[in-house]
Amino acid sequence: MKRIIVCVKPVPDPKHWDQVSMDPITQILRREGIPTIMNPLDRHALEEALKIKETQGTEVVLLSMAPPFATSILREGLARGADWAVLLSDPAFAGSDTLATAHILAAGFQWIGEPELVFCGNSSIDGSTAHIPSQLAEFLDLPNVMHVVGLDWLDENHMIITQKIERGHTKLKASPPILLSVRKELNKPRYIPFTGIMAAESKEIKVLSHANLGLDHTLIGLEGSPTKMAGLEIRRFERERERLEGSLEEIVQSLVDKIQLYGII
């Protein structure tokens, strides 16, 4: 196998989600001062690619569509072991929904050159739509298996994929080229080795703009995004409370009834 592309996305660190607030008028999330991390499932996607690299010497390329600050998570991916990275970044991409993003990422694939394997996280922890992998597979004309929790290679061209389904697992036999979207059960991502950090300094992060990709402007940004957000509200979760009234006997009886009703005993 020659090349694996791993899609990675910068997301706000969930440890700081209590600091995220929403501008009540513009309904835009305020995330100033919240650190950015690599989407956790993307680390599992990268780990699986690195395991193949170790046995087959395959080139691993990272691909991200994001603002320029995303170079920090790409550098981290390079330190973990990827070979080089491509960042698709342009103000024209701002406001892209999942469809427009998939168009842009697909153009990135064309630029890098066809891979045999593509790994994505199953979903990102911020948007959580889980749209991108399937949309991307459609544009790239690749088969897509989601919810991948196991990958066993029979030989360099045949794999058994374990896919999590609602009540259990399915096993699928597949061959590259294919796009796999992975869940966290798939593997335990490696830590960032210090030697990798040093090696990453000289690895390339290629930044490509709208002009480099030459996409039709109707496909990207707000213009290329059919998704329209109807509204955004902050939901508050509170315990349900109820005050039982009446005589002592009545209160105890209704408490017992409730305990039985909710199946507590």
């Binding site: 960032i192 950090i197 040093m198």
Partner: peptide
């Protein structure tokens, strides 16, 4: 440096 930030991140994650 970016390298030192990454080193801190690496050890923090491990620890």
């Amino acid at each position: 440096s970016e390298k030192e930030d990454l080193l801190r991140k690496s050890v923090r994650e491990f620890a």
